[in-house]
Design a protein around this nucleic acid. Structure first.
Lengths: 217, 217
DNA sequence: CTGGAGGTAGACCGGTCTGTATACGCTTCC
DNA sequence: GGAAGCGTATACAGACCGGTCTACCTCCAG
């Protein structure tokens, strides 16, 4: 970061434009004119549009991760509370003006079926998210940590795209509600002495062999 | 549907191509050559590419909804079981070759920040999904039906994008696991006679006034 | 003073995009 | 027979795309 003022301007402008309108919908000329930089300068710092996209996504993701983890940790002191605080922070984010979902998820959708340097950035960001939740789940000492962390991660992704699509009125609140149930049920304190064989079916592996024809979608 | 054989071919080819490679990444010429139709014929049936995109998405969504509801209803006979069966059907779908997420979600991401006739198709499809789950939740007589149905809907969306991104090993199984917990806790049979004041905090409204700075993303 | 590094401005190239226009079959039904 | 309807083939228009090139400006260090 901050290799040069011009490069920085390009990076931030590009990230903002790609996020707001989409990677394919924003041309290099648009980035150039919006960041008040000559086209040659852009191509001196970034060898191609693809490289610029990856760099912008990475920069944006780095900033977001710092903001997100700090916000979650500032809101709640203990791991179980922080798991719920995730969804409060998300709710706040959803109401931010200019919210258009997760930038890496958007990139993953836009770049599907192609090879692109941004894919590594997407995987890194999503892996970090899953790791963040996994760490909190482990710290909270929840039962079945893998399955629980996966579920919380999916709930978070669902809340993000739910907020983006706009069908659900309060996606963060609904997700928080479900997360609360999950945390409570998986917490050690919840396990009552009665009904010892409760945690038997370990999830994850069940699948029923019912056959149904596929559909192209 | 079936206005003419040529029109049908265009519609299905377009849906398949847009789904696999993205709306912006597929040009009209590609659709034309892939569907073995003259360009003029395409533009005789669809006044613009936007209209074609919307029609193809609609057609694809109609087929998917029919397949999905039939599959869920074939797998399980009762509403609570069907709620869980949703995630089994999803798991089967995720492993289909050529799976690239939900077509309407992809379109919503690709068309963000624009006005496009496909938006109505997206809203209709997502609304149907939410309604499908809401119907099952009501039929199962679960507590806090709105919040529960929202959470299950978000879990489903999360599983879909989770399967698309590929960080989670078994997104459908993890989501099913969480859905099982949710259904059990919200089911009437679960409510124990002790602790009468349990269902007091009605979720949905909680929000804490913690301030934290925003981030552009 | 001088020279190089970094930035600017704008023309330019080949390719692709959506959408249209023209000219030509083939079938079907009066 | 012939005209209408439908589809084909192909060329074209005008815009935009990513990317390159040249020429010029400005600042700062040696």
């Amino acid at each position: 970061m901050c290799a040069s003022p011009a490069s920085d301007r390009v990076l931030h402008t590009a990230a903002s434009l790609f996020y707001k309108r989409g990677i394919h919908a924003v041309g290099v000329d648009t980035v150039v004119s919006a960041s008040a930089v000559a086209k040659m300068t852009l191509y001196k710092h970034f060898p191609s549009k693809d490289a610029l996209v990856a760099a912008a996504l990475d920069e944006q993701g780095t900033q977001w991760r710092a903001w997100f983890s700090a916000a979650v940790e500032a809101v709640a002191p203990t791991a179980p509370e922080r798991i719920l605080a995730i969804f409060d922070v998300l709710g706040h984010w959803f109401e931010t003006e200019g919210f258009h979902g997760d930038a890496t998820l958007n990139a993953a959708v836009e770049l599907r079926g192609t090879e692109h340097p941004a894919w590594e950035v997407v995987r890194a960001h999503q892996g970090w998210l899953r790791g963040f939740i996994g760490g909190l789940v482990a710290e909270a000492g929840l039962d079945e940590p893998e399955c629980t962390a996966d579920a919380l991660y999916l709930l978070m992704e669902g809340a993000i795209v739910g907020a983006q699509v706009g069908i659900t009125a309060h996606p963060a609140a609904a997700a928080r509600c479900a997360a609360g149930v999950l945390v409570e049920v998986r917490s050690v304190a919840h396990r009552p002495p009665r009904e010892a064989g409760h945690g038997k079916a370990r999830g994850q592996g069940q699948r029923q062999g019912q056959e149904q024809e596929e559909v192209g979608q």
